[in-house]
């Protein structure tokens, strides 16, 4: 291989890496470095190195631990749920059923709705007294529910709202992946006597492996770093029941002005996320 030839991949990577260096890596390093410093509150403005004090402060804080618990429950439910539903929806709207085009269009609509607008709409639709959903429930004889105002229902409700946007969004990628599976392969499996389930499990799924890995990893990251729904809908309540770690970290930094413990919290979140993502890569690695 010539020298020029060896430089090819680096040249392809150059624009992305330069942009990432300035807009991501240096800011990331600077942002996370705050976790080792006390917040600059004094008039002298000097930042003091405090070692792991910010981490100790968090570990002593019951709100931090409740936030970890909420994030764990949220993640364990929302990620498999969204990926499974996106896969199901992708396969469903990819069927050759009459009128499927209309359904596909409708079901993909939430993709274009911003999370701000979606939160506004669902916040109003789920209102205890005036919401559309309770109007519906009442019409069929079910008692009104508090949804986002009930400590037991708030997190499941938030999972629902987040998935209303999330599932169609991830379905886009599944559809792009399904698009790549030649019809002949599926036809061949049928001819061989495989039923729909067998075809799906043994032909479609293996061929979607790379797409699924992408969806799983990207979805996990998106959900770990989620903060707009608690910010707009619940402020982490009621009773801290929707106080996701990213929202808590954001609040510590930008409301409480405590950049140190905010950065420490992000760093902890990042480590957890890294472990989960590594497991996902290992689980879905090519089997050769």
């Amino acid at each position: 291989m010539t020298k020029v030839e060896r430089s090819v991949p680096y040249l392809f990577l150059l624009p992305a890496m330069i942009l990432l260096l300035f807009w991501r890596y240096i800011p990331i390093a600077m942002g996370l470095r705050e976790s080792l410093y006390s917040n600059a509150l004094s008039l002298t403005g000097a930042k003091t190195f405090v070692g792991l004090d910010n981490f100790r402060y968090l570990f002593d804080d019951p709100v931090f631990w409740s936030s970890v618990r909420v994030t764990a429950i949220f993640g364990i439910i929302v990620n498999p749920l969204q990926v499974a539903l996106a896969l199901a929806l992708g396969v469903l709207v990819n069927q050759s059923l009459r009128g499927i085009g209309i359904f596909r269009t409708i079901l993909l609509l939430p993709v274009a709705i911003s999370i701000n607008v979606a939160a506004l709409a669902w916040g109003l639709a789920l209102d205890t007294n005036y919401g559309l959903v309770n109007g519906l429930l009442e019409a069929v004889g079910v008692a009104r529910q508090d949804f986002l105002r009930d400590p037991d229902q708030a997190l499941p409700t938030m999972i629902g709202i987040v998935s209303w946007i999330g599932v169609p969004f991830w379905t886009l990628f599944i559809l792009a992946g399904l698009q790549g599976i030649p019809h002949e392969v599926l036809e061949a499996a049928r001819v061989d006597g495989a039923n729909r389930l067998q075809t799906f499990l043994h032909v479609t799924l293996p061929l979607l492996r790379r797409v699924l890995l992408f969806v799983l990893v990207a979805d996990t990251i998106a959900n770990f770093t989620l903060f707009v729904p608690p910010y707009l809908l619940t402020r982490g309540g009621p009773g801290n029941s929707t106080n996701l770690m990213m929202y808590d970290a954001w609040k510590r930094g930008f409301v409480y002005g405590d950049l140190g413990s905010s950065a420490a919290m992000v760093l902890i979140l990042l480590l957890v996320m890294a472990v989960v993502v590594i497991i996902q890569f290992l689980a879905l690695r090519p089997q050769h």
């Binding site: 807009w23 800011p27 990207a218 990213m246 930094g253 996320m273």
Partner: peptide, 30 residues
């Protein structure tokens, strides 16, 4: 395949994992 591929790949994943809110002050200063 090239030397440093894995390191660079991990860096790409890192860029997507760190929430923007955590880097907003340095990015804004830039």
């Amino acid at each position: 395949d090239f030397p440093g591929k894995t390191v660079l790949w991990v860096l790409i994943l890192l860029s997507l994992m760190v929430p923007y809110e955590a880097t907003v002050i340095p990015a804004y200063t830039l």
